[in-house]
Design a protein around this nucleic acid. Sequence first.
DNA 1: AGCCAGGTGACCG
DNA 2: CGGTCACATGGC
Length: 280
Amino acid sequence: MFVHNENFNIMQIAASGQCFRMNRMNESKKQKCNLVAYGRYLELTQLDAETVELSCSEEEFHQIWEEYFDLSYDYSKVVTELISGEDEFLKKAAEYGRGIRILKQEPFEAAISFIISQNKNIPAIKSCIEGICRCYGEDKISRECGNTPFHLFPKAEVLARADKEALRSLNTGYRDEYILQAARSVVLGDLNLEDLKSKSFEEAVDTLKKLRGIGEKVANCISLYGLHHIEGFPIDVWILRALKEVYNNRFDKGKYQGYAGIVQQYMFYYIRYLKGIKES
DNA sequence: AGCCAGGTGACCG
DNA sequence: CGGTCACATGGC
């Protein structure tokens, strides 16, 4: 199954810090990644600048991945606008990260993942999440995965009953309690993530922030990557650095109303590149 | 060896 | 409101 799109680069997406279970496969120096989401295992190969091969059937692609990779949204419009705009930093950022797209991840996975993400670096977040999937996620096998089982991200029901000490031993640190409480809120129906998709971005953020361990930044991440509120604009240490050093704290995201989250993603990916961070 | 990481909550004035 | 501090732990 092939996808042609000039704004679809799997290595850039995998290194963009929005998802933590998309990994480079590093075999025969091909640009190849794998991924587990929505109960499936998928392999992707970047054949050239505008062609990606997916290991799934056409049916599965239309059922799951077309939506997951937000392939009906016109990212070239955003990139073109930024490249032809006045902002020199965003010009270069959009040029550099033009293959990035905002994924539509599973809401619960995004919620827990970004609770874990606080005050951790990306490799540490990834290994922590893998541990949680290994211990609490359902095992599946597929032809594409060569009969080695892969692990789904755990259901809220399972995580909600996890032992705190066991969670702690998976390097969650002080976030163990946050994870348990979030999972329990979902199980009890106090937090309905699906519901928040159809609410406004502001309401989604406000609702998420009521949970312990979710502040402004994490709420923006969950909204952006898990609920696809693309006006979200998470400000972490990297974005803060860019806003200070590049813009002297005068950046106005209001110019990008309705899609600031995409702009944020180009900024994040580019500032980290400028600072010499190796792709993770 | 020490600083940093896709931060947050508690506490202070 | 805005500043400071502890928090648990791996990466580099």
